[in-house]
């Protein structure tokens, strides 16, 4: 048994990591430049990618986009890698003035995006010239819209991800009178997703659930209640979790579980019998019994569900759930390949 003194290099987190310049197709390193001036930040606008991966065992939440389908499609349309950072806009959008010419794509919730007061198409690449102003109008459907910029934003990363996690001090929500940098790249306008693939956001969604892992904590009666009732999204739902107003789902042996890892879409039932669907900013572990997990293919439906929106659950096997997530993954993969050869 040796006694040793260790010096741990704990630096104050002051110097942001240097951004790595992207390479354009002809090999020139691309320069980071200011692309937006933030006139208004919107109610909750954050940078998000596919999340902080590989650090959950140290207690670092994943975060990342709430609606990963929309994030990836936005990136694919502008020719970025699928997990490139986008702006996630929540209900009331920001006002952004372009400082140079850029190509963007907006996907997800329909918040009536406009450039210089003219309504713009969603799910399609659009050009902004220097001085153009992007605004959002009235909320039409969904909750979260994604803005991708061709070339990608230049954002500070923490644990390998640029996803904003305000709670843990990884970035902050968009602030007024700040600038946004990117590595703008020329992209063709009008590249869009086929209409038949554009999701429609309903006010009542039916989502599939893989049951478990705390099956022993729920009676058959509780289980039936959970699957047969319509649950309403409560107003104090956020990026961490969606609180549902439900018939009281009773627990048995309620305190009898050891904390374990909680996934995106996990459905906790705390002592008050009101379910919580764990979302992108959830903690890594939790101590409440979980009745099931929303399947990956249906998570975007939840992410786009408005407060007071309704949700109904139905059980599926893990095999059925995996078939659907693989289909979604293949769709995105093919879309990406097709777009890159466009």
């Amino acid at each position: 048994m040796g006694k040793a003194e260790f010096k741990l290099a704990f630096r104050a987190p002051s110097t942001p990591p240097k951004s790595i310049p992207y390479k354009s197709k002809d090999g020139d390193p691309m320069q980071s430049e200011t692309i937006f001036h933030v006139i208004k930040p919107g109610v909750l606008t954050t940078f998000q990618d596919m999340g902080r991966i590989g650090y959950q065992r140290f207690g670092v939440p994943v975060s990342g986009a709430m609606d990963r389908f929309s994030l990836q499609v936005a990136n694919i349309l502008v020719g970025n890698n699928r997990n490139t950072t986008c702006l996630e806009v929540t209900l009331i959008g920001p006002v952004l003035e372009a400082r140079t010419s850029i190509t963007i794509a907006i996907t997800g919730a329909n918040l009536q995006p406009k450039i210089n007061d003219r309504l713009e198409p969603m799910w399609k690449t659009i050009r902004m010239n220097k001085g153009d102003v992007l605004t959002f109008g009235k909320h039409q459907s969904g909750v979260r819209a994604y803005i991708a910029v061709g070339g990608g934003f230049d954002v500070e990363t923490f644990f390998g991800s640029a996803s904003t996690d305000v709670k843990n001090g990884f970035g902050m929500q968009l602030q007024k009178s700040t600038r946004i940098n990117a590595f703008p790249m020329d992209v063709k306008q009008g590249i869009g997703l086929g209409k038949q693939f554009i999701p429609i956001y309903e006010k009542l969604v039916e989502v599939a659930v893989v049951e478990g892992p705390h099956t022993a904590n729920f009676t058959e009666e509780a289980r039936e209640l959970f699957f047969n009732s319509i649950h309403t999204v409560d107003a104090d739902s956020n990026r961490m979790g969606y609180r549902l107003k439900s018939e009281n789902i009773p627990l048995q042996n309620s305190s009898d579980i050891w904390s374990d890892a909680v996934p995106f879409g996990g459905i906790q039932i705390p002592g008050n019998g009101q379910p919580i669907i764990l979302m992108a900013d959830r903690q890594t572990t939790g101590g409440y019994p979980r009745i099931g997990t929303v399947i990956s293919a249906d998570l975007p439906k939840i992410a786009q569900l408005m407060p007071k929106g309704e949700v109904k659950f139905y059980p599926v096997t893990v095999e059925e759930a995996q078939k659907l997530v693989i289909e979604m993954e293949n769709f995105l993969y093919k879309l990406d390949v097709f777009r890159k050869n466009f």
Partner: peptide, 10 residues
Amino acid sequence: MQAVGDSAVK
């Protein structure tokens, strides 16, 4: 072992 959704196993 138990499936936890479609992308995790406990």
